[in-house]
Design a protein around this nucleic acid. Structure first.
Lengths: 150, 150
DNA sequence: CGTAAATCATACTGATTCGGTCTGAATTGC
DNA sequence: GCAATTCAGACCGAATCAGTATGATTTACG
């Protein structure tokens, strides 16, 4: 029942990207430094985020990454799925693969609990966007804050 | 974000024990067989459940295990904590250890999300008891069903 | 053009965790 | 006393995870 470091890193990095949204592309190094994430590891995560269509990369000098869409359209669930695959509390309560469920399902007392848990988790993750995250964090408290927001 | 096999096994085994509640102690072997769980592994889990006070063991021939209390008093969260330790979505959103939080917390955009997730999970797990689990599983569909319940 | 800055891509590795087994001691009903 | 059963802890192989290393490709800028 624990988040992977991939998810923790990716969400924080994406929040950073959302904060910078509208300006030019931001380099991996900047984000890694500000969020204290191993640069090479983050690079790996960004590739997955790019393949998932959440961000786009600009190569070459002065290049970097930026959000593909607007912060309102990216949920925490999207980010998690991009770097960790489908969200699945257990093999018998996962999204994606519909009904190759365990044969035990019909008489398993645990199944309804896992289903509720799965739904609860997914609904929390899918109902929070990058926009929401920025909105509930006072700008002046954020690292990497651009404008000297007084 | 996945349940451990310890939790999956332990919850199923405890449901079985709840179902047998009232009769004499049930042996490890019976439960392991009915729920298709490696016996020696389950033994390990039962030791933890016993240390947590959820079940009691009777040694010797014709011995076995039974619930310490009534099914209404045991939640899925209790079982999970007994075999897997405190529930913690990440190091900065866990139960137990109160505030040795990460120094990033005040300016971290991700923190509120993890806190909501943690609360959501814990509240689902703590609001479901063994009694509830049996109640929502038709008796006739259960394995190890004793009475020919018609 | 050349060079430096940056993304792209993949293979590798070291450590930790996980799921499960092995061996054996202690207890108790029959 | 013997068989059944819980108690206890050490052990182990495999998978996963977090992170690194290496190098190719692209592009702004002087």
């Amino acid at each position: 029942m624990k988040l992977s470091s991939r998810t923790e890193y990716a969400v924080r990095a994406m929040a950073e990207l959302a904060q910078m949204h509208g300006g030019g592309p931001v380099s991996l190094r900047e984000i890694a430094e500000r969020q204290d994430i191993p640069e090479k590891y983050l690079e790996q995560l960004f590739r997955q985020l790019r393949k998932a269509g959440l961000i786009k990369g600009v190569r070459g000098a002065q290049g970097g990454y930026s959000l593909t869409g607007v912060p309102r359209d990216v949920t925490v669930g999207d980010i998690m799925r991009a770097v960790d695959g489908p969200i699945a509390v257990c093999s018998c309560a996962s999204e994606g693969r519909g009904e190759d469920d365990c044969e035990r399902k019909p008489h398993c007392a645990a199944h309804p609990v896992w289903a509720r848990l799965q739904n609860g988790i997914v609904s929390i993750l899918d109902s929070t966007t990058l926009y929401d995250m920025l909105a509930e964090t006072p700008a002046s408290d954020m690292q990497g804050n651009r404008g000297g927001g007084s």
